[in-house]
Design a binder for these strands. Structure first.
Lengths: 106, 106
DNA sequence: AAAACATATTAGAAATATCTAATATGAAGG
DNA sequence: CCTTCATATTAGATATTTCTAATATGTTTT
């Protein structure tokens, strides 16, 4: 059990903190895609998506693989995929919880 | 299997996107604490911590329970705790991966 | 009821993140 | 080579988040 540095963890988690990045992650969750496919899927601008991809890569969440003039991006590993799945599971729980307690998320 | 709304998910994930908030979560991971205990543990200002606690509550990650003049904050449920644990597991994986590939996190 | 304590809220300043638009790089095809 | 296509990078404008300092709320203690 390695000791995880707090700053590293924060940087890692930062990857999940923007709508576009979450969309990208979900969009490539099951199979890698080229930048242009991602741009089309989530209807963003090329430059913007490219920047978010760089961010996700920097956070350690995705990897890019060049093939000719295309670059394919996919999740870095299986554990990241499991984490994405877990977000949904946990959120369902939270939502049920919140609904039954009459509290609100904001 | 409920369908999780993207905006709800993004809001939820936003809770993890700041160093102080991650510190708070880790600090109350095993048992709930009062605001002043948290302030002391992570060496922040009362006002600042209070604002981050409000944020975490809004994101659905923690719950507060008043007892006399104290307010105890703890993780909302067990699943959130598992998620925090999973972050460490995934990060270890990523770090090993990154180390062996000679890429960097930034 | 006043004082002391714990926490929350607010406003505005300061710091950071994001987006847009333009340009750069680099590979493939003619 | 020159063009086209896919992607990356940059700079500056804009938007958002965070912090600090001051004040407010609510509870206990005296």
């Amino acid at each position: 059990m390695l000791k995880i540095d707090l700053d590293t963890k924060v940087k890692f988690l930062h990857g999940f903190s923007h709508k576009t990045r979450v969309e990208i992650l979900e969009c490539i969750k099951d199979n890698e895609k080229t930048v242009s496919q991602i741009v089309e899927d989530i209807q963003g601008s090329q430059s913007n998506i490219s920047q978010h991809l760089a961010c996700l890569k920097g956070c350690g969440l995705i990897v890019g693989r060049q093939e000719g003039k295309y670059v394919y991006y996919g999740l870095r590993n299986q554990k990241i995929r499991e984490l994405l799945t877990m977000f949904d599971v946990v959120l369902e729980d939270v939502e049920k919880d919140v609904a039954c307690c009459e509290n609100h998320l904001d």
